[in-house]
Simulated assay, not measured.
Amino acid sequence: MFPSRHVRAALGLATTALLVAGCGDAGALRSAGPTATAVGPVRLWPQLAPASTPALDYGVADTETVRGVTVAGDDVHRVPPLDVFRAEVAAHPDTYSGPNALYAPTRERLADCGKKGTAGRRCPLLDAYYRDLTGDGRDDMVLGIRFPGDQLAVRVYTVEHHRLVQVMGTSDSVISVELAGRDVLIRSPSTLPGYEFRTVWTWDAHQHAMLASRDEILRTGTAPPRRRVSPVPSKSA
């Protein structure tokens, strides 16, 4: 099929424009201006000996096999989220039981949860979400649990060797929780006005756990104006 008359005319005009434009150009290279000098990294205090002990346990894997919960067909969708949370409460009596337990109010509010999961305003368990975070082709379970003091616990569970395993557990004051690809992004408030923290949790195949792979402080708005300091008048002689 040949192009229409209008198309052939347009192509002819475009070709003519290119030829005319090329008449005044000899094809020589043109300078793009001065190039900034590359500055490499500078190591500070090279005389310091490397540390022999880790500074923080930031990359320590937080994993735990959930006891008393079966995974039918290795399908995490068939595991009741409420059973998972109840198993956590039973496995950590010092945390959830007794008058001095930090999360005793959370355990007491379990009575407001329905048989299948969340129900009632006081139920601490939020709706479960499912996403393949480990890259094995199967969905994993993400749970959110409201703790006292406006704290939110985030848990991630996967199936390993026919068992349910918690591969991530953290709690903090939270602005929002997001799933981005295979990452869990948690935004938290900062004491600095106009800023917030964002922590990215990523699956680590060596640790078999979700690790905090990136922790950032981000500008989110207009910071308050800096207070001007008036100069101190000098004392006269």
Results as ranks from 00 to 15, higher is better:
residue 155 R to M: 11
residue 146 R to I: 02
residue 76 V to H: 01
residue 162 H to V: 11
residue 99 P to R: 12
residue 127 D to F: 03
residue 160 E to C: 12
residue 82 L to W: 00
residue 151 Q to I: 13
residue 148 P to D: 02
residue 99 P to Y: 11
residue 178 E to Q: 01
residue 72 A to H: 13
residue 130 Y to R: 00
residue 88 E to D: 14
residue 111 A to F: 01
residue 97 S to R: 15
residue 49 A to P: 13
residue 81 P to T: 03
residue 62 D to W: 06
residue 77 H to G: 03
residue 134 T to H: 12
residue 156 V to R: 06
residue 161 H to M: 12
residue 171 S to N: 13
residue 175 I to W: 14
residue 171 S to P: 12
residue 57 D to L: 15
residue 166 Q to F: 11
residue 55 A to L: 12
residue 174 V to K: 05
residue 70 T to L: 11
residue 185 L to H: 09
residue 63 T to R: 03
residue 104 A to M: 07
residue 128 A to Y: 01
residue 91 A to H: 05
residue 154 V to H: 02
residue 124 P to R: 04
residue 53 T to P: 13
residue 58 Y to S: 14
residue 108 E to K: 01
residue 94 D to G: 07
residue 54 P to A: 06
residue 107 R to P: 11
residue 81 P to H: 07
residue 137 G to A: 05
residue 161 H to S: 14
residue 45 W to K: 15
residue 96 Y to D: 02
residue 171 S to I: 08
residue 77 H to S: 05
residue 66 V to W: 05
residue 97 S to P: 15
residue 81 P to E: 04
residue 101 A to P: 03
residue 159 V to H: 00
residue 102 L to P: 12
residue 84 V to D: 02
residue 44 L to A: 14
residue 56 L to P: 08
residue 133 L to K: 04
residue 91 A to I: 10
residue 180 A to M: 07
residue 79 V to S: 00
residue 148 P to Q: 02
residue 158 T to L: 04
residue 54 P to C: 09
residue 77 H to P: 06
residue 106 T to E: 00
residue 94 D to Y: 06
residue 78 R to N: 11
residue 118 T to K: 00
residue 110 L to S: 01
residue 172 D to H: 14
residue 185 L to M: 12
residue 164 L to V: 04
residue 162 H to Y: 12
residue 105 P to R: 02
residue 62 D to N: 08
residue 132 D to W: 11
residue 153 A to G: 10
residue 95 T to K: 14
residue 67 R to F: 09
residue 92 H to L: 15
residue 96 Y to W: 06
residue 102 L to Q: 13
residue 185 L to Y: 10
residue 92 H to C: 15
residue 170 T to P: 07
residue 110 L to K: 00
residue 85 F to D: 02
residue 71 V to N: 04
residue 170 T to R: 09
residue 127 D to Y: 06
residue 83 D to Y: 02
residue 44 L to K: 14
residue 60 V to N: 02
residue 112 D to G: 09
residue 114 G to N: 02
residue 57 D to H: 15
residue 177 V to Y: 04
residue 122 R to S: 05
residue 124 P to T: 03
residue 165 V to Y: 12
residue 145 I to H: 04
residue 87 A to H: 02
residue 78 R to V: 08
residue 157 Y to V: 10
residue 65 T to C: 02
residue 93 P to K: 10
residue 57 D to R: 15
residue 134 T to A: 09
residue 109 R to K: 13
residue 166 Q to L: 12
residue 115 K to C: 09
residue 88 E to L: 15
residue 51 A to H: 08
residue 170 T to K: 08
residue 166 Q to V: 12
residue 139 D to N: 09
residue 177 V to Q: 08
residue 51 A to R: 10
residue 113 C to K: 00
residue 51 A to D: 09
residue 86 R to E: 07
residue 49 A to W: 14
residue 72 A to Y: 11
